[in-house]
Design a protein around this nucleic acid. Structure first.
Lengths: 300, 300
DNA sequence: AGGCCTTGTCCCATGTTTGTAAAAGGTCTA
DNA sequence: TAGACCTTTTACAAACATGGGACAAGGCCT
């Protein structure tokens, strides 16, 4: 049993919308405590997650709710694959608050104040959906952090502490997006020698939020391991992150090896330096939201 | 049998809250002396510890109490704490359930099944308090994972995916332990070149749960950065993790440098290969629970 | 274009939950 | 007998929830 706040955290739907959806469409009817507080059970959470996914894909909330309450779409299954997919024009305007939050984060990193970092991160992710927050706030902030490190404003210690704080929050989002899918895997990771993994983790999370069976294998994975992995298990897509110029050579080598190791596998690459990695490699867009959408299309 | 003060010390719940929990939720009904003093038995302590654990994890007190009194959630038994102690001696899981969970985890890692890993991890941490779960289940499981990797049962990909899954869960616990203290900092990290950070993160979390202002700086931090960090900010304790033999030289070098860089700083070291790092370095016990307790003493 | 509907989000006054503290007094031990 | 420890009752602030109206943005129909 979950309170409305916990239900919101678990489904990714804002608290206000949970109440609106209930009032307007009656998708769920959570039990109430004596004092009138909503208490959501597992079923309600599943229904709300299903509705959120449909809405994310372009269904209108009204039709999504109707489909779910009528049983046409079962919560927790992949019948959404038959769903009509409307083009979603991304590119929300950068929130005016995103910039000040980025500054506050750099300050916290410079002072090595973990509690302050965590507070800023929380506010950053509260700006919008996970995807928009990553695109409009997190990625710019990471760039600012890199600059601050380069010019000495932030020490390595502050930079490490800040990276780990962000990683913890991303990990939490990844876990919260737990998909019940057990289809072909999507491998997301960095080539041997690469360590800037925050972008890759953010992308992996966005992909998982779309229902893909993501396996996040993280930093510094040798070519040979990539190859063995896609041979040993049903892997449909391998995604390489190429965050820095130094990562290019190994990334290209890994991509080549993968393309020739398994027939039918899709190799994709994302990150600042992922252009023209090798012929046949899909170049993912910079926007996490768009990249996740492309992934979903590739999966079919 | 314990007085309310002892019960508070044992469970980490403030005295006033113990009385409030009893009055509001009836989660325990301690026996009374003739004069009306509360006397808590082992069962009551277990129930209160379980409740604290749930509340720490984000449950509302009301639902946590309901789950415990209804038997939905079993209070962690004392046998797990004994198992935790034994695990230190035998270097392996000794609690029957911990053992079967360790096996299940290796299986999930071998199959690179992320959802299964997450499920097993969740059950592992449900065995008891964070500290006992780490000592009796997580650390033995990590050793088993290392063995499985060494003998080829688990591929590098499975090992990476498993490590990240555990890291996500540890990060969540670290975030949940958010301390409001802003006293002198405790730096926890690994020396330059070291990357096996799960033990260090588990320890950092345990220390934070004790109220210390922990800054987790993670893997691969150069000597010079350690030095600048403790000089620039009020840092009372620096903790170096030394998980493998290969990490010893850099760890020793870092420890030496720190001891001579700031007067009054305490340098501590933990991990399998942290013995006799340098004169003046505090060697932390293998048990996470004990190590965190030692830290709390060092802080004063 | 204009008007209308849908939808997410915000506001606001009000109510609940929960940790913690204070007051006033009883019990135990050195 | 002092001081540490305990008792109950009462109180209070912060965090969280409630409903329902309001509003802006955007899609759709005329």
């Amino acid at each position: 049993m979950f309170t409305i706040k916990q239900a919101s955290a678990r489904t990714g739907v804002p608290v206000a919308s949970l109440r609106a959806w209930e009032r307007r469409y009656g998708v769920v009817a959570p039990r109430r405590t004596e004092s009138g507080y909503r208490m959501y059970d597992e079923q309600a959470i599943a229904a709300l997650s299903a509705m959120r996914r449909l809405v994310d894909e372009g269904w209108t909330p009204a039709t999504a709710a109707a489909a779910i309450t009528s049983g046409e779409v079962e919560p927790g299954t992949e019948s959404l694959q038959q769903a009509a997919r409307l083009a979603q024009a991304f590119q929300g305007p950068v929130h005016p608050e995103a910039e000040s939050l980025a500054e506050a984060f750099i300050e916290a990193a410079a002072a090595v104040d973990v509690a302050a970092m965590e507070s800023v991160i929380e506010r950053g992710f509260a700006l919008g959906t996970f995807e928009t927050a990553v695109d409009a706030w997190l990625m710019p902030t990471l760039r600012a952090l890199g600059d601050a490190w380069a010019d000495g404003t932030v020490d390595v210690v502050g930079e490490h502490a800040a990276s780990y704080a962000i990683m913890r929050r991303l990990g939490q989002a990844f876990a919260a997006a737990s998909s019940l899918t057990s289809g072909p895997r999507v491998l997301v990771g960095l080539p041997s020698g690469s360590h800037h993994e925050l972008g890759a983790l953010a992308f992996a999370t966005a992909a998982r939020r779309r229902g893909l069976a993501v396996v996040y294998v993280g930093a510094d994975l040798p070519v040979e391991s990539w190859r063995r992995a896609i041979r040993a298990f049903p892997t449909k897509i391998a995604v390489l992150a190429v965050p820095t110029a130094a990562d290019r050579p190994k990334a290209a080598e890994t991509a080549e090896a993968l393309l020739h190791s398994a027939p039918g596998i899709v190799v994709a690459a994302g990150g600042s330096h992922a252009d023209d990695l090798a012929p046949g490699v899909v170049r993912l867009p910079h926007s996490i939201a768009e990249a996740a959408r492309v992934m979903e299309e590739l999966e079919r």
